[in-house]
Amino acid sequence: MGILTDYFSAADDAQAGSAARTGPSSPDPLTNQPVFPTVELKGIDPFVVLGTLAGLLTDRPYAEAKTDPRHGSLVATAGDEGPWVVAVTDALVTALAATTPTALDAVAVRWAATEELEGSDPADLADALRRLSELCVRADDAGHRLYCWTSL
C-alpha cells in the first residue's frame, strides 16, 4: 500500500499535534470544513524525498539539508505504529513559497531524476510541487508552519 502523507499548515506544534489521531483533513464538527489546509501527496515522504527536494531548492547537499532540527522531527504520534505528525523545515517552506511555477517545473525534472523518485513523471511531480507551494504561500502569509501527517 505504501506511505500516506498529508501536508498541512498549523499555527504551531501543539495545534499540529492535534491532527495525529484524526488526520489534518478531518472536518470541523461545526463547519464541516477541514480543520487544517491540507495537500495530499502520496509517496512524498517527509524524510528522504522531502530532504532531497530541500537540497534541490536551496542548492545544498541533501546531507546538509537534513541537518535542520525541524527536518522530519516528531511533533506528535497516535501510538507506536502511528500515525505521526512531523515538522517540515521553515527553510523549505520559504523556498517553496518563493519559487515561481516555471522554476518548480524545472525542479520537478531534477527531482524526478533522483534515486528516490526514479521513474516518476516530472509533470506529476510539478503538479505536486505547485500544490505544495500554494500551501506554503498560505502558511507563510498566515505565519503558520508546515507539517506532514503520515501513516503506513
Score class of each variant (00 low, 15 high):
1 M>A: 13
2 G>L: 09
2 G>P: 07
3 I>F: 09
11 A>N: 12
11 A>G: 10
13 D>C: 06
14 A>W: 06
15 Q>G: 05
15 Q>K: 10
15 Q>F: 06
16 A>T: 00
17 G>W: 03
23 G>M: 06
23 G>I: 01
24 P>A: 03
25 S>T: 08
26 S>P: 12
28 D>E: 09
32 N>A: 13
33 Q>G: 12
33 Q>P: 06
37 P>I: 12
37 P>A: 14
40 E>Q: 13
40 E>L: 11
41 L>K: 02
41 L>F: 01
42 K>F: 07
43 G>A: 10
43 G>T: 05
45 D>S: 12
46 P>H: 05
47 F>P: 06
51 G>A: 00
54 A>F: 03
54 A>I: 08
55 G>L: 06
58 T>I: 00
66 K>Q: 15
67 T>G: 09
68 D>L: 04
69 P>T: 01
69 P>Y: 10
69 P>W: 10
69 P>Q: 09
70 R>D: 13
70 R>A: 12
73 S>V: 11
74 L>W: 03
75 V>T: 02
77 T>A: 09
77 T>N: 04
78 A>Y: 08
83 P>H: 10
83 P>K: 11
85 V>L: 06
86 V>N: 00
88 V>P: 00
90 D>Y: 13
90 D>W: 12
94 T>N: 05
97 A>D: 08
99 T>D: 01
99 T>R: 08
99 T>A: 02
100 T>K: 12
100 T>V: 03
101 P>S: 04
102 T>Y: 02
103 A>N: 04
104 L>F: 03
107 V>C: 04
107 V>T: 03
108 A>P: 01
109 V>M: 14
114 T>Q: 09
116 E>I: 04
116 E>S: 14
117 L>E: 02
117 L>D: 02
119 G>I: 09
120 S>T: 15
122 P>W: 11
122 P>C: 12
127 D>L: 15
128 A>T: 14
129 L>E: 00
131 R>I: 01
131 R>T: 05
133 S>A: 09
134 E>Q: 08
136 C>L: 05
136 C>G: 07
137 V>F: 11
138 R>E: 05
138 R>C: 02
138 R>H: 11
139 A>L: 07
139 A>H: 02
143 G>Y: 00
144 H>K: 01
145 R>Q: 11
148 C>Q: 04
152 L>K: 13
